[in-house]
């Protein structure tokens, strides 16, 4: 029997299509136009062509923001993800008791959210009064004045993000590990493969697709870092992006240009640079995973 749905699918899709057209498609097209304009708040703009992009490339603040963002992204991928995998491996032992208890705890910071984590971090990393310096001082004799919020801003942000997201990424890895065919590892064991050999030649290849996905998610999230530094430094006397713009990220710079300076055009040009970069990262991931299958 041929189905004759009539108008039903259109009615069901109408709310989505309407919102999508007005608040995704239109702004997306408009952002292309805006990127060629210079504006002073909404409704007042001049056409400047590709000048915004030319200015961005020689803008030292853009490069500072790009460098900070890159450092944070590398920290997320190369420090946070291996730790998440280690935790997942530890939790994946079949004889382990209390797995769901651990999973609950490791996952919980994710719920605190970026804004509220930023609030906690802004106080914990304070000189003298913050818990971090007091603890490091008590155990290792670190200086109580170690300047997390003044100088070592990116490590401070990487540590905070580590606390927030390591459990979240662990959940993905754990799910992937539990899908690894046990007969494969057992066969390798019978063949006399060592623990390390089993990990690198059986387990790791089996969880690679999920691993690639988690890396991509991590890059996408890290490149868009905004709330954490914004909140942390709104709670300190430095304000803005911290001393010497040490916490300035690409999206923070976009926010500042759009809503503090009022130049929606320059901000849109910056938005396109971020979008193209992320698109290339996604494409790269696709090419790498496809290449492996072939």
């Amino acid at each position: 029997m041929r189905e004759r749905p009539g108008p039903a699918p259109y009615i069901l899709l109408a709310p989505f299509l309407l919102i999508f057209a007005v608040f995704i498609v239109y702004p997306l097209i408009r952002s292309l136009g805006l990127a060629t304009e210079r504006s002073f708040g909404p409704g007042t703009s001049d056409f400047v062509g590709i000048k915004n992009f030319r200015l961005l490339l020689i803008d030292p603040l853009f490069w500072k923001a790009a460098r900070n963002t890159l450092v944070f992204t590398l920290g997320s991928v190369f420090i946070q993800l291996p730790l998440a995998l280690l935790l997942a491996l530890a939790l994946n032992r079949p004889t382990l008791r209390g797995r769901s208890f651990y999973r609950l705890i490791f996952f919980s910071p994710q719920l605190v959210g970026l804004v509220f984590s930023g609030m906690i971090a802004s106080l914990m990393f304070e000189k003298r009064t913050g818990l971090i310096n007091k603890t490091l001082h008590g155990i290792f004799g670190f200086s109580l004045d170690y300047p997390w919020l003044q100088v070592h801003i990116m490590p401070m942000l990487i540590i905070t993000a580590l606390w927030m997201y390591v459990g979240f990424n662990m959940v993905y890895f754990l799910a992937a590990l539990q899908n690894v065919d046990r007969s494969l590892t057992e066969a390798a064991m019978i063949d006399g493969a060592s623990k390390a050999q089993r990990f690198f030649h059986v387990t790791l290849p089996a969880i690679r697709p999920v691993g690639a996905f988690v890396v991509l998610l991590s890059i996408i999230g890290s490149v868009q870092l905004f709330e954490l530094p914004f909140i942390i430094f709104s709670q300190t006397p430095y304000g803005g992006a911290g001393p010497d713009n040490g916490a300035l990220t690409l999206v923070m710079y976009l926010y500042r240009e759009a809503f503090e300076t009022g130049d929606l055009g320059y901000a849109s040009a910056l938005g396109w640079i971020i979008a193209v970069f992320l698109f290339l990262a996604g494409l790269g991931q696709l090419v790498i995973t496809r290449g492996e299958k072939a």
Binding site: V22, Y26, P27, R30, G265, I274
Partner: peptide, 10 residues
């Protein structure tokens, strides 16, 4: 973030 400025304008 790409849609932030145009959405604000809209």
């Amino acid at each position: 973030p790409l849609l932030l400025a145009p959405t604000y304008e809209l």
